[in-house]
Simulated scan of single mutants.
Amino acid sequence: MSKSAAKDFANPAEDRAGRRIDPDVLSVLRSCTADEEGVTLPPTQLDRKLYVRVNEVLTALGGKWNGRRKKHVFDEDPREILAVAQSTGSYMSPKDFGFFPTPPDLARQLIEFADLEPGMLVLEPSAGHGALLDLAAAVVGRENVVGVELLEANLKKLAEKGYATMAGDFLSMEPEPIFDRVVMNPPFSGLADIAHVQHAARFLKPDGKLVAITSPSFTYHSSKKAQAFRDLLDSAGELLAEIEAGAFKSSGTDVRTVMLTLDADRLPWNLDETDSQSSSERMAA
């Protein structure tokens, strides 16, 4: 991969500004009250069209209208997420974060490609509900898997399963090359998947391996980032499988995907280090 291509991958980041809330909808939300189980609308009759738009936001935040309780009921305490929406005038749903759980058949296929062995240390960025961690833990041991997750509800599920987790935006985390394997199904929107894969590769040991499910968009996209990723894949990995639309239907999307792998010993930064060590050894001799 050229220096210019490598530059295109440096310091990956994503815009997480969220969806803006229309002023009239925001006014209603700021008049809502919330307790540990749900959100109650203000005691005024809302225009039907306005109610539909308010309901859209509350549903995206995780609520569901309950006529008996006369409130939008949430699985998790909604007070914090409502307060964020009220103060920022924007909101995000799990789908905005690209959260589409890995279907069981694809998860098993990915884990097979990862060639796991007992005792290996395994990372799953954007771990979701732990579909890949569950299968990896069965091989390497629960104590040897680590998940990264941004959504609070998913973090709670991972904690209930007993997994070690790192909370936050994966792309903002400083890489530490300690993992034998990375297994991942990252967010796809706006080439976010290739940014996640490239960043995740820096968490691998020099002899480690990454296996990921991504969108196929990098294979035909004309951007510099997509070209740089194609160069990276050519030098350090390969496409393992093309997955037809419909495989993720149970998770709420019909997007086509691919499965790919990267071998750490062929990554540019590890090759550069190897070349540098060889030069030093020759000079010492």
Rank of each mutant, 00 (worst) to 15 (best):
R142C: 00
I178H: 13
A153L: 01
T165K: 00
V145P: 00
N185V: 13
F218Y: 15
P187L: 10
E152S: 12
E160T: 07
F170N: 01
K157W: 07
G141S: 10
V140M: 07
F179M: 08
I178Q: 12
H199L: 09
G162D: 07
P186H: 03
D207F: 13
P175S: 02
N144E: 06
A212S: 12
V140I: 05
A200I: 14
L155C: 11
E152I: 06
S222D: 13
L155K: 00
S223V: 14
L158I: 03
V148T: 10
I213G: 10
L151W: 08
D193P: 03
F203T: 07
A192E: 09
K157C: 05
K225I: 12
S172V: 09
E174L: 13
N185Q: 12
H221M: 10
A153C: 01
A153P: 00
I178L: 15
V182S: 04
L151D: 04
P175C: 07
E149W: 01
R181W: 05
T214E: 03
V182H: 01
E176F: 05
S222N: 13
P216E: 03
D207A: 14
P206N: 12
P187C: 05
D193C: 14
I194A: 00
F170Q: 04
G147R: 02
M184D: 08
S223K: 11
V148K: 01
G208I: 15
P206L: 12
G168A: 09
M173T: 08
G168D: 05
T219G: 13
T219Y: 06
V182N: 06
T214R: 01
S189A: 04
L151P: 00
V146N: 04
G162H: 07
V140E: 01
K157N: 07
A153F: 03
I178A: 15
P177T: 11
E176I: 08
A195N: 11
S215G: 14
I194Y: 01
P186E: 02
T219N: 12
R181A: 15
S172K: 09
A153G: 08
E174G: 06
S189T: 00
L158R: 02
S215Q: 11
F170A: 10
A164C: 06
V146D: 00
G162Q: 05
L150E: 00
Q198F: 15
E152F: 11
G208A: 15
G147P: 05
H221Y: 11
P177D: 09
L191K: 07
N154C: 11
Y163E: 06
I178D: 14
G162K: 03
V139T: 11
I213E: 10
G208L: 15
D169E: 07
D169K: 02
T214D: 03
A167K: 09
E176Q: 07
L151E: 04
Y163K: 02
K209F: 15
G147N: 04
K209L: 15
P175Y: 05
D193W: 14
N154R: 09
M184T: 10
H196E: 11
P187S: 05
D193Q: 12
E143T: 13
K156T: 15
V146H: 04
K156I: 15
A153H: 06
R181Y: 14
P187F: 02
P216C: 03
V146S: 00
V148R: 01
E143G: 13
L210T: 15
A167R: 08
S217M: 11
K225C: 03
